[in-house]
Simulated scan of single mutants.
Amino acid sequence: MNKKVEVQNLGIRDYKETWDYQEELFKQTLDLKIKNRREEQDVPTKNYLLFVEHPHVYTLGKSGDATNLLVSEDELKAKNASFYKINRGGDITYHGPGQIVGYPILDLDNFFTDIHKYLRFLEETVILTLAEYGLKSERSPGETGVWLDVGTPFARKICAMGVRASRWVTMHGFALNVNADLGYFDNIIPCGIKEKAVTSLNVELGQKKVNMEEVQKKLLKHFEGLFQAVII
């Protein structure tokens, strides 16, 4: 089992360009797994973790409801935002500057073959990271992602998640609001969940701006520990 994970910092990059890149890595891994099985060989598959910030974009998962996008195409253009229907699970979400998006493209045969556990580990990576900032975050029953003040009228989501997997190879991932412009969430019903607020780390800490690089390093540390990965 190859537990090495190659981390790539893509900086600020267009959503479609990054999605195409994910698909390329995803297909390479799937093709190798199929070839290994067909030819009875055992060539190790690679694992990746992509970190990226996107320009303003809304994405709708394959089971999502398009009516959860509350603005027209013209209004999207006016807000310099784009919109894509994509092949992950989940409903609609927003990505934009000030948000750390993580895309693990892992062959779970290298770690564990359990999608439920995989999602819980991604959530735990974020929960442990936020704890370092003094925030108690948690899961909300039946609602993927990471939340604050679950079970109260003040419940708010700080990290959205949506993944795709085939033959135990993953893509898509999580989006953690660090210095996000929360006004962009007003244009959607986030994740299709009505009457629940969205928040960002800088808002919770009462800071104008949180160091994104520092947050990313903490995420990477906890990801490495939970998955018992070797970061390269």
Results as ranks from 00 to 15, higher is better:
Lys85Val: 14
Tyr103Cys: 00
Ile100Met: 10
Asp91Gln: 10
Gly89His: 08
Gly96His: 09
His95Val: 11
Ile105Gln: 02
Gly96Ala: 09
Thr93Gly: 11
Asp109Ser: 08
Leu108Thr: 03
Asp109Gln: 07
Phe112Val: 05
Thr113Lys: 11
Ile100His: 08
Asn110Thr: 04
Leu108Met: 14
Tyr103Arg: 02
Lys85Gly: 01
Thr93Asp: 07
Gly89Ser: 13
Pro104Cys: 06
Pro97Met: 12
Ile105Gly: 02
Gly90Arg: 10
Ile105Glu: 00
Asp107Pro: 05
Asn87Gly: 14
Tyr103Gln: 03
Ile100Arg: 14
Thr113Trp: 00
Pro104Arg: 05
Ile115Leu: 11
Gly102Val: 03
Asp114Arg: 04
Asp91Tyr: 08
Gly89Leu: 04
Asp109Tyr: 07
Asp109Met: 05
Pro97Cys: 07
Gln99Asn: 11
Pro104Gln: 04
Ile92Asn: 08
Lys85Phe: 00
Thr113Ala: 03
Asp114Cys: 05
Gly98Glu: 10
Phe111Ile: 02
Thr113Met: 07
His95Tyr: 13
Tyr103Thr: 01
Asn110Trp: 01
Thr113Cys: 08
Phe111Cys: 03
Ile105Lys: 01
Gly89Pro: 06
Ile92Pro: 07
Gln99Ser: 10
Tyr84Gly: 12
Pro104His: 05
Asn87Phe: 13
Tyr103Leu: 00
Lys85Glu: 15
Pro97Lys: 14
Asn87Gln: 15
Pro97Val: 10
Phe111Val: 02
Gly98His: 13
Asp91Thr: 10
Ile105Trp: 05
Leu108Pro: 07
Asp107Asn: 10
Asn110His: 05
Ile115Gln: 03
Val101Glu: 06
Gly89Tyr: 05
Asp109Glu: 09
Ile115Pro: 00
